[in-house]
């Protein structure tokens, strides 16, 4: 059974019909990628799963329960975390406080500390800068912080919205390998990316969004070879 299943999801912004009945599923332990051009509806999909946008119709089932009417903070409590587009770290708070807020719903101090150490292992640069304010970090460091913060809630499923946006190629590779590492640690991942090549390489399956509908889906291996994908998203 899928850990996350989106069915016939419709979302509107006023009169704009942003999602026109998309359906997809994510299995436990997978990395699934959503690719698509600007404005295809990727961010809208993730925001609606997290409860930041309201659906018009359809369902979002997480671990057998429809979460599409829950408040955003309750959805986090259920085990769905998100690293939003544009990082959205708390600029005037320290790196440490940002990470601490990621664990806002958790009580066990020991386990929180253990996860903090794990985040510092994944992102050693954050450890060096733990007392700096998040606003003073570079863009790449802020992305690391946003991801670390997302992990601190111990999500069963982590939604990542364009984690490589605006990063230098070296750092992009590093981020993608860390995503794999997070996944190997047991976290299921739904990844939204412009970088179709790398995201297809690390994911098992992918869905291609075009103006609010799923245009194509399949295993990432197949999609990497698909001429339509190669032409539209891989620049080949």
């Amino acid at each position: 059974m899928a850990i996350l299943e989106v069915k016939e999801l419709h979302v509107h912004y006023g009169v704009i019909h942003a999602l026109k009945g998309i359906s997809f599923s994510v299995q436990q332990g997978e990395i699934v990628t959503l690719i698509g051009a600007n404005g295809a509806g990727k961010t809208t999909t993730l925001r609606t799963i997290s409860g930041l946008n309201q659906k018009t119709s359809g369902s979002i089932v997480f671990r057998g329960q429809d979460i599409s009417r829950l408040a955003p903070h309750k959805i986090v409590a259920q085990g769905v975390g998100q690293v939003p587009e544009g990082r959205r770290v708390f600029p005037q708070l320290t790196v440490e406080d940002n990470l601490g807020l990621g664990a806002y719903l958790r009580k066990n101090k020991k386990e929180i500390q253990r996860d903090l150490n794990r985040v510092f292992e994944l992102f050693p640069r954050l450890k060096e800068r733990r007392r700096q304010t998040a606003g003073s970090l570079s863009g790449g460091e802020q992305q690391m912080l946003a991801m670390g913060r997302g992990l601190m809630s111990r999500p069963a499923v982590l939604l990542l919205d364009e984690p490589s946006m605006g990063l230098a190629p070296m750092l992009v590779r590093e981020i993608f390998s860390i995503i794999q590492e997070i996944n190997e640690g047991g976290t299921t991942i739904l990844l939204v990316e412009q970088n179709a090549h790398l995201s297809l390489e690390i994911s098992s399956r992918a869905y291609v969004l075009e103006t609010g509908t799923v245009a194509l889906d399949g295993s990432s291996k197949e999609l990497l070879q698909d001429p339509r994908i190669r032409q539209a998203y891989l620049g080949a």
Partner: peptide, 12 residues
């Protein structure tokens, strides 16, 4: 600082 980001932390 950021209401939506706070919601994503699980803050009510």
């Amino acid at each position: 600082m950021d209401k939506e980001a706070a919601l994503l932390m699980g803050i009510d």
